[in-house]
Amino acid sequence: MRIDCPYCGERDAQEFVYRGDASLMRPESEDGMADYVYLRDNLAGPMTEHWYHAQGCRTWIAVTRDTTTHAMLGAIFARDGVR
């Protein structure tokens, strides 16, 4: 699998560490914290995920990937992300 890092360019997925769904917003208060920590949607289709380019630029990126076709649909710096 190849991931197109916005800084380094396209790289082997083994350079990255996977975290999970990037669409979750960390709640400011206690409400919703349990859901934020434990509940996940299981999407069939395009999904945006956080990956850490551990063996590259050490930047967190948000990758949009289709979980059924494995097509890579784009990646941006997580800090610029979908929020």
């Binding site: 560490v17 956080h50 850490y52 050490r58 930047t59 967190w60 710096f77 997580a78 800090r79 992300g81």
Partner: peptide, 10 residues
Amino acid sequence: MQHIDYARQV
């Protein structure tokens, strides 16, 4: 290191 980077970047 990954945790610190997640906290400060994301």
